[in-house]
Simulated scan of single mutants.
Amino acid sequence: MDQDERRRHATSFGAAAARYAQHRPDYALDAVRWALENAPGPRVLDLGAGTGKLTATLVSLGVDVVAVEPDTGMLTELRRALPDVRSLPGSAEAIPLPDASVDAVLAGNAMHWFDMAVAGPEIARVLAPEGVLVGMWNVVDDRIDWVAELGRVAGDAAIGPRDVQSNWRVATADMHLPKTGVDARFGSPERAEFPHGQDRTVDSLIETLATRAGMLVMPEREREATLERIRAFLVGRNDIPDGGFSLPMLTGGLRVRRL
């Protein structure tokens, strides 16, 4: 994906902010605890916070969280859902916080949209010494047969990368030069995955998949055909209850420490 296409995907969510807030999953609590376990203090930045899915989990853990989000539609939804959280307009490439002002930077399903050649030094700037940067992603658990088949039917536009490592590679693809970006400022990544799930019906799962960036930028006729194909697959499965089911997922993370 070139920079123009990445930018088009990254800025596609605002028009669907309300649906995103309603249908996107939260994050496994154990995964968020893991993300923060080595942070030197309680000050956490949720970067690219969207509508506040990860922010809400951080609030439940009692940390001192500030949310930063570039899209006005997404930020409006976050402020509506979490009015007591400090939330600021800004981006990973221009974070509106002072130097060394947070102990952890978490990015939930967002880091692959960052221009890490610019964002890497900026994240390092706002992190305290020994602070942690954690990229977190919710992915479908395609070790389950019907989920793997759903992925084949729906395609990458609706499902996205199936594993955390793929997302990390996308996020850090432009950091290959030595002594630049994250490489010069952070240690080696640690990886972990945690079981997760989202209660869905056929209709609400289709709504969820429709909020994927690849679906939002797709031509309308192609998008409708893809969603109808997904619906036909789900309705035709005998092992997917009509009344509701839990979509098997994983919350995965990659964690690096500020040098």
Rank of each mutant, 00 (worst) to 15 (best):
M1E: 14
D2G: 15
Q3E: 15
R6A: 14
R7A: 15
A10F: 14
T11A: 15
T11M: 13
A17Y: 10
A17T: 12
A21Y: 05
R24A: 04
D26H: 12
A28E: 10
D30F: 00
A31S: 03
V32T: 01
R33F: 01
A39D: 00
P40C: 07
L45R: 00
L47D: 05
L47V: 02
G48S: 01
T55N: 03
A56L: 02
T57C: 04
V59C: 10
S60E: 10
V63L: 03
D64L: 11
T72F: 00
L82V: 09
D84N: 09
L88V: 11
L88E: 06
A94W: 00
I95M: 11
A100Y: 02
V105A: 10
L106A: 07
L106I: 12
G108N: 11
A110H: 14
W113D: 12
F114Y: 09
D115T: 13
V118L: 14
V118N: 01
A119W: 13
G120A: 10
P121K: 13
I123V: 15
V126G: 08
E130P: 04
G131C: 10
L133F: 15
G135K: 03
M136R: 08
R143Q: 14
R143W: 05
D145T: 13
A148M: 11
A148W: 15
V153E: 12
A154G: 12
A154C: 06
G155A: 13
G155R: 10
A158V: 06
I159F: 14
P161G: 09
R162Y: 05
D163L: 00
S166V: 02
S166Y: 08
W168M: 07
V170T: 14
T172L: 14
T172Q: 01
A173M: 06
A173T: 04
H176S: 12
P178N: 06
K179D: 15
G181P: 07
R185T: 06
G187V: 08
H196V: 05
G197Q: 10
D203F: 02
L205V: 06
I206Q: 02
T208W: 06
T208F: 12
A210H: 02
T211V: 02
A213I: 04
M218H: 02
P219Y: 01
E222D: 10
R231V: 05
V235A: 02
G236Q: 09
G236T: 00
N238G: 11
F245L: 08
L247P: 00
P248S: 01
V256C: 03
V256L: 11
R257K: 08
